[in-house]
Computed example of a mutant assay.
Amino acid sequence: MEKLLVHKNSGLDILVKVKNIVIGGEEKVIISGPCSVEGYDTMHDIASGLKKIGVHILRGGAFKPRTSPYDFQGFMEEGLKTLKIVGDEFNMPIVTEVMDSKDIDLVLRYADMLQIGSRNMYNYSLLKEVGKLKTPILLKRGMSATLPEWLYAAEYIMANGNENVVLCERGIRTFDTYTRNTLDLSSVAAIKQKYRIPIVVDPSHGTGRRELVARMSLSSIAAGADGLMIESHITPDKAISDARQTVSIDTVGQIVKNVRKFDGMFRD
Rank of each mutant, 00 (worst) to 15 (best):
M229F: 15
G117W: 05
R210D: 10
K51C: 04
A189N: 06
T82S: 02
G131S: 09
K52P: 00
Q254S: 12
L139M: 10
G61C: 08
R244W: 05
R170A: 13
D226Y: 07
D88G: 15
K132T: 14
N9W: 07
V188Y: 04
L15S: 05
K238H: 04
T235F: 11
L80D: 03
A111K: 01
R59F: 12
E97K: 14
A145C: 11
K261F: 15
G24M: 09
V6A: 15
G61Y: 13
K134F: 12
D250T: 08
A243L: 06
E155L: 12
N120G: 10
F175T: 06
L183M: 09
M113Q: 10
E27Q: 14
V86P: 05
L15W: 01
I240W: 08
E97V: 13
V37N: 04
G25K: 05
G206P: 07
L212A: 04
E38Y: 01
T235Y: 12
A189W: 14
E26F: 11
L139H: 07
K102A: 13
T179S: 15
I199N: 02
Y122L: 09
T174G: 12
G224S: 09
I255A: 06
K238T: 04
D112T: 08
F63P: 01
S68K: 04
I21S: 03
L5G: 09
A214L: 14
L50V: 08
K140V: 12
A214W: 02
E155I: 09
I31D: 02
K52L: 13
D202A: 07
Y178H: 07
R141Q: 11
D103T: 01
R196D: 04
T146Y: 11
G264Q: 11
L228G: 10
S217W: 03
L133G: 07
V22N: 07
L15A: 08
Y124L: 13
D41H: 08
M76N: 13
Y178N: 09
D13H: 08
L12P: 07
R260A: 05
D226F: 06
V213P: 01
E231D: 01
L228D: 13
I30H: 01
K238N: 05
T246V: 11
T235K: 08
A47M: 09
S32F: 05
T182N: 10
D242R: 14
L212N: 05
S187N: 14
T82R: 15
F75A: 14
A111T: 05
E231V: 03
V37P: 03
P34D: 00
D71T: 15
S248A: 12
Q245D: 00
C168Y: 03
R209G: 05
V256S: 05
